[in-house]
Design a protein around this nucleic acid. Structure first.
Lengths: 108, 108
DNA sequence: CATAGAGTTCGACGGTTATCGAACTATCGT
DNA sequence: ACGATAGTTCGATAACCGTCGAACTCTATG
């Protein structure tokens, strides 16, 4: 069974770099994990989870969105965040591809 | 909770972080790619490939080794570098796992 | 031994970035 | 309308990090 939507490896060099940098900060990675754990994660929950200011949380989310790893949409006063799993998978696949590791989806 | 059946080298949080940071710099990533391309890559080749000083190359290799992504061994005056594909795969798997993405090797 | 080449280490410099508080906007409930 | 709550934006600060040149070690070869 193939998944129709996962048109991966469509990552530009720039996005690949943005993703790598976004994942490099441990706190931001942790934020991503929390978002991945909840479905429809409001920012407020993140503030309770980490000992950082809301400005910092906002910044991290912005970076995650910029990298394409997270999709955010407003619902009233709340901001809901969702992980773009397809993008993360594409990053993972591209990473392995660059290291010369073949995955089943990479058929020459 | 029980221990997951990660046959592969299980990454510690610290190593996961080191790898993420090692991959975050575009030049270092490019260095990794060159190493992956050659088998038994001498450092000297890297210097020809990038417009950076040998001090910088040395630094990048050190970081890659520290992260466990590269194995280096001396052969006379030369340093040979080799990509640890298993570690890169483990990182990729752990990354997806943390985002709640299931791969075939992660059987609960 | 002497010279050259490969790589390491060190101190410094400059750019990036995580973090904060404060001021701001927008939305909800009363 | 008012106050409370959610999130953004803006400077500023401090730490981090990629980069360099210079001095160093080690090895190979005349």
């Amino acid at each position: 069974m193939k998944k129709p939507v996962t048109e991966r490896s469509a990552l530009t060099d720039k996005q690949f770099e943005l993703i790598a940098k976004a994942l490099a900060d441990p706190r931001r990675m942790a934020v991503l994990e929390v978002i991945a754990g909840e479905r429809e994660c409001p920012c407020q929950k993140l503030r309770e989870e980490f000992p950082v200011s809301k400005a910092t949380i906002s910044h991290h989310i912005k970076e995650l969105v910029r990298a394409g790893l997270v999709e955010a949409h407003r619902d009233g006063q709340y901001l809901h965040c969702e992980v773009r799993r397809d993008v993360l998978e594409a990053y993972s696949a591209e990473l392995l591809r660059r290291a010369g590791i073949r995955t089943k989806s990479s058929v020459t």
